[in-house]
């Protein structure tokens, strides 16, 4: 049997063997990711439920564990409404345009030292480029819907994403200065040696800025004025229904997991254990990576349950007048420390 399969496999020409192998690897990343997205929605409802002294969904399956699957089927069977005034082509294309970068950025994420699909030198640049793509989908969705609420939501969302992207970019520059490489895998390897080597400590202000900007970038509470259900109903996706809405929804959650993974890689030492001694080294690298990502994701949900929504002018003030000055100053501090003080080794 094995020989027969091997014979079939060798019968393929070389290029298709490579392509098939890559496809299998991609599915090995995407299927767990989509499952994680589905169960993140479940975790969100459960955790926020318990924080508010409720039980959360508990009817579908044992203790509600089949809820995300039921939700998926329900959304699949709903009508996709395309409003008459809408620009049909752009209206249909926008969700896919938001969804694609949220998935494609995972191509360069190093899960462990060896477990990375494309180990390219410019992986950080690639991630930055792809996460910037999402805003096009949002603007196109809001404009193509030809509805006032959608238009207002898209304007708000675009201005907010754009403002926080600058702070995010500056925070990345700090990480680059410390690591001296654009390769995500090498950035993690530079943090080898235990919790005191993680960039969390020397770059602490940048960690805060990056994480909070990440929450704003994904339009999550308390920065969710783009959705603002109490004022502009659902923002840019008010006209979307059924599967078209589900695609936006999945993209938002995939982006949350992506931001968590990036925070883990750049500030929390990726797959590295916090202490290089016995009980901590027993957990494999992938385990540490998942633990850290889950921790950050829990913070996302915790924020939503805890903080009231910011006003729009407060959001813009935080982005332009607090985060950008803080990151600019800290870039100067890192550079100064590297060249002028004996503590430069902290950043090497």
């Amino acid at each position: 049997m094995t020989e027969f399969l091997l014979g079939v496999w060798n019968g393929f020409p070389g290029w298709s063997q490579t392509t098939l192998l890559i496809l299998v690897k991609i599915l090995a990343i995407l299927l767990p990711l989509i499952l994680a997205v589905a169960y993140l929605t479940f975790a969100e409802r459960k955790i926020i439920g318990y924080i508010q002294a409720r039980i959360g969904p508990n009817r579908v399956g044992p203790r509600g564990w089949l809820q995300p699957i039921a939700d998926a089927f329900k959304l699949m069977l709903k009508e996709i409404i395309v409003p008459t005034n809408a620009n049909k082509f752009l209206f249909i294309m926008a969700p896919v345009l938001v969804f694609t970068p949220a998935l494609a950025a995972w191509a360069v994420i190093p899960f462990t030292d060896t477990l990375v699909l494309a180990n390219i030198d410019a992986s950080l640049l690639f991630v930055l480029a792809l996460t910037s793509m999402g805003v096009y989908g949002v603007i196109i969705a809001g404009w193509a819907s030809n509805s006032k609420y959608a238009f207002l939501g898209a304007m708000r969302s675009a201005a907010q994403i754009v403002a926080y992207e600058i702070a995010m970019g500056f925070a990345l520059v700090g990480v680059l200065m410390a690591a001296g490489s654009l390769n995500l895998r090498e950035i993690v390897l530079h943090q080898e040696g235990g919790i005191h080597q993680w960039y969390l400590l020397p770059l602490f202000p940048l960690f805060l800025v990056y994480f909070i900007a990440g929450v704003a970038e994904t339009n999550r509470a308390p920065f969710d004025v783009a959705e603002g259900e109490s004022e502009i109903v659902a923002g840019f996706h008010v006209e979307y229904s059924g599967m078209a809405f589900a695609v936006f929804f999945l993209a938002e959650y995939a982006n949350m997991i992506l931001i968590s993974a990036l925070v883990t890689i750049m500030f929390l030492g990726g797959w590295l254990p916090p202490f290089n001694v016995a009980p901590f080294t027993w957990i494999p690298g992938l385990g540490w990576f998942l633990i850290k990502v889950s921790l950050i994701l829990f913070c996302f949900l915790w924020f939503r349950a805890t903080f009231p929504r910011y006003r729009y002018d407060q959001i813009m003030r935080l982005g332009w007048k607090v985060f950008i000055p803080v990151t600019l100053v800290w870039i100067g501090v890192i550079g100064g420390a590297m060249f002028l003080t004996p503590w430069g080794y902290l950043f090497h």
Partner: peptide, 26 residues
């Protein structure tokens, strides 16, 4: 960079298939 190109293709495909499924099943 080939895996990345294929990955982007797969992501577009999945998004497209989901929209198509909603259109056909709904």
């Amino acid at each position: 960079y080939l895996p990345i190109l294929i990955f982007i293709g797969v992501a577009v495909f999945i998004g497209g298939v989901m929209m198509m499924m909603g259109r056909m099943l709904g």
